[in-house]
Design a protein around this nucleic acid. Structure first.
Lengths: 233, 233
DNA sequence: AAGTGGTCTAGACCACTGA
DNA sequence: CAGTGGTCTAGACCACTTG
């Protein structure tokens, strides 16, 4: 248990995780106190803490003051998804990005959108519909509602040139977001816009963002057929 | 800039994030060195480090030795998804969980599955098809391939009683996983199994897991219509 | 070569919570 | 109320990487 010189907390983590993986400690079991690991592994308690925090973050163990550290009984698959700006997603996949503004209009939200954003139905919002293209083919259709109160500068942006997606991400960073992923069948309009067959299964990402308590935007992004969201752990 | 007594790193993080949100520092800008923040905010450098690490983890800033800390130019939406055991997902939503084994057979994988798992096409795997139910209605159909070499004990498990999902999660924790999310149209068999209409849009989660270099399982889980994956940031 | 972030330590005190 | 994890500090050294 020596030879743990540099980047030692990762080695410590591996050592502890190893003992869980090889069933020295089973789900529900209580692990030794940090201090004991520290003595055992020849490092300081802070280093064990660093390792344990990471294991807890990944959902491997649960930690409680006084209660100690336990192997999670019901492990979850905890995945991190990075959802980039659509333009970058296209470009990083080696495609040529294109963009077309379809509609831009001030209007009051539907009940659903008003509830998502937490605004009154009488509020006037900016509604923007746009199509993102990859190599000239439809890639993602977005139907977006923007709070004029929170992001009034958006009214002066030429949305024919810069997508609302991009402008908002760069100029109105959010502090909180809700995300929903699901599948829908293409209706006639979506099928036309995305060049999909009638009823094609489409992947949808809904995202609503706030800065503090102020709503920024709510967007429903519907991807063309074949879209896949990938991640690794 | 005082009154930062306890849990101070979160306050420090808020202070720094605040200066980014209010555009004191714009995307691409270089932030002061940790040490300067520390002096400015009246805490130690380690505390600034803790705050900065969190901001970096969330994709707000990028840090490089010697290069310093910069506000990310292309912010990403970084979301964390917790994918629980299907039974718990049903129960936590207030449903009654049910489970039905459909098929259990040793067989060689298709080319796609062999590639995903990284095994030879001649390897014999255990293939398990099962249906998860919520309140007696189909919830998720899973088509799973299990490495007999890595998880030989699965052969002795009565999969009529305990789902492979559950057994594996408790007994074969993984160290690495690949995840893919996408939408498909129901074929005849899926429509029948999930009580969905022909061509209904279905949400699919593919997951392949390894422990070290050894493949454990690859599963395609197809959810019944209406399924949504949610998360918050 | 030098500047910046990353890690480690020892020790202290605090916050939570189970017995 | 006592045991455990969480946080903070000051200082040291190291690892990157940019100028």
């Amino acid at each position: 248990m020596n030879r743990l010189d540099r980047n030692s907390w990762i080695e410590i983590k591996r050592a502890i995780h190893g003992e869980i993986l090889n069933s020295t400690f089973a789900p529900g079991d209580r692990l030794p106190r940090d201090e004991d690991w520290a003595r055992e592994l020849g490092c300081s308690r802070s280093t064990v803490q660093r390792a344990m925090r990471d294991l807890a973050l990944r959902g491997v163990v649960e930690r409680r003051r006084k209660g100690g550290t336990r192997v999670r009984r019901n492990p979850v698959t905890r995945a991190t998804l990075d959802i980039p700006i659509t333009r970058l997603e296209v470009e990083e996949a080696g495609g040529t990005y294109g963009y077309r503004l379809i509609k831009r209009r001030r209007m009051a939200p539907s009940a659903k959108v008003a509830e998502r954003l937490g605004v009154a139905r009488t509020t006037t919002l900016l509604r923007v519909e746009a199509l993102h293209l990859s190599n000239g083919r439809p890639y993602v259709f977005e139907d977006r509602w923007i709070s004029i109160e929170t992001a009034s500068e958006i009214l002066d942006v030429d949305l024919e040139v810069e997508s609302a997606n991009e402008w908002l991400v760069r100029n109105k960073p959010f502090s909180r977001a809700d995300l929903r992923f699901y599948a829908i069948n293409a209706n006639d309009r979506l099928a036309r816009l995305l060049e999909a067959q009638a009823n094609a299964a489409l992947f949808v990402l809904e995202r609503t963002t706030w800065t503090g308590e102020a709503p920024i935007t709510s967007v429903t992004a519907t991807a063309a057929p074949g879209y896949r969201l990938l991640t690794q752990i």
